[in-house]
Design a protein around this nucleic acid. Structure first.
Length: 278
DNA sequence: AGGAGGAGTGCTCTTACGTCA
DNA sequence: CCTGACGTAAGAGCACTCCTC
């Protein structure tokens, strides 16, 4: 699975945007919570909607289930495990991580001032005696730089790359994995925010255009009702026929037979045919 | 107090594999 | 024996959240 184009936000919002898509995976599974949508989008006057429907109590999410099931969707964040393996998955996953990385962890703990805790699955007492006490890891600058570099090349890692990177960084593979997950999530969030700002601007522009056009329309209507037809035509295109001294009436001929090319109105364009006469 | 970011948790989806008709 | 349908477990990624600094 790779990131090959924008569009979580872009597609989900139904517009294509110019902003850089590189880090946003199309139609990614899961959801992106848009905390600003409820307040800000609701205040939008023009009818630029995000196509939301359904239970308003459920969380708004953008994205879709799975790798290729994108679009807007809602996801009940409190779903009781419907999937076959989600519950056991977690513990198994944890066991896997812990099992395979335990030895590494011991050797890499020079990065931790204290041992990282493991929560929920095993309320293990840490070295420092705290239970479930998370000790925040701060990556060093070189570590962050290397991770960033790797992220630029591949926004997701295969197991081999993960192992290699972890070894280089003297971190646990799990930590590398989590870093990439967070990086992807936060990149996506930023992209979504940018997209939102862009849409907001588009919306404002459209609203202004709409107002201006409405105003123009009103003016033209007013003009129409107060002036005879020929007065409304642009002066440059409407010229009195010098021979018959009248302004052509399109209704009499062209309207009755619009395909009759011979039937021309009695006005002519002085620019395209300055010497024309009836 | 609030933001940044590392980490835990729960969920969905895909894939591989075994079983059965 | 082969094949397609089906169920299940494993693995991966994501959203959401918590928590520390």
């Amino acid at each position: 699975m790779g990131f090959d184009g924008l569009s979580d936000a872009g597609l989900a919002l139904g517009l294509s945007l110019n902003s850089s898509p590189s880090m946003v995976k199309p139609n990614t599974m899961g959801s992106t919570k848009l905390p600003w949508v409820t307040e800000t989008m609701a205040s939008f006057e023009p009818s630029l909607t995000l196509g939301l429907s359904g239970d308003p109590n459920k969380k708004l999410v953008v994205g879709g289930g799975g790798d290729d099931h994108g679009g807007l969707c809602r996801q009940d964040s409190t779903v009781i495990s419907g999937g076959g393996s989600s519950f056991s998955n977690v513990s198994v996953k944890r066991e896997r991580e812990l099992g395979s990385e335990e030895s590494e962890r011991v050797s890499n703990d020079n990065n931790y001032s204290r041992l990282m805790s493991t929560t929920s699955v095993d309320d293990v007492e840490d070295d420092d005696g705290s239970i479930n006490g998370r000790k925040k890891l701060r990556l060093t600058k070189p570590q962050s730089a290397l991770l960033e570099e790797a992220f630029k090349l591949h926004s997701s890692l295969n197991p081999k790359q993960k192992q290699e990177l972890a070894r280089e960084l003297k971190l646990r593979p799990r930590q590398v994995e989590v870093w990439f997950q967070n990086r992807r999530a936060r990149t996506k969030l930023k992209q979504t925010e940018m997209d939102f700002e862009h849409l907001k601007k588009c919306c404002e522009t459209l609203r202004d255009d709409n107002r201006r056009l409405h105003k123009e329309l009103q003016e033209l209507k007013a003009l129409k009702s107060s002036q005879p037809f020929y007065m409304q035509l642009p002066a440059a295109t409407l010229t009195m026929c010098p021979s018959c001294e009248r302004i052509g009436d399109t209704k009499s001929s062209a309207v009755k037979n619009p395909f009759n090319m011979a039937a021309k109105p009695h006005y002519f364009n002085s620019f395209t045919n300055p010497s024309a006469a009836c």
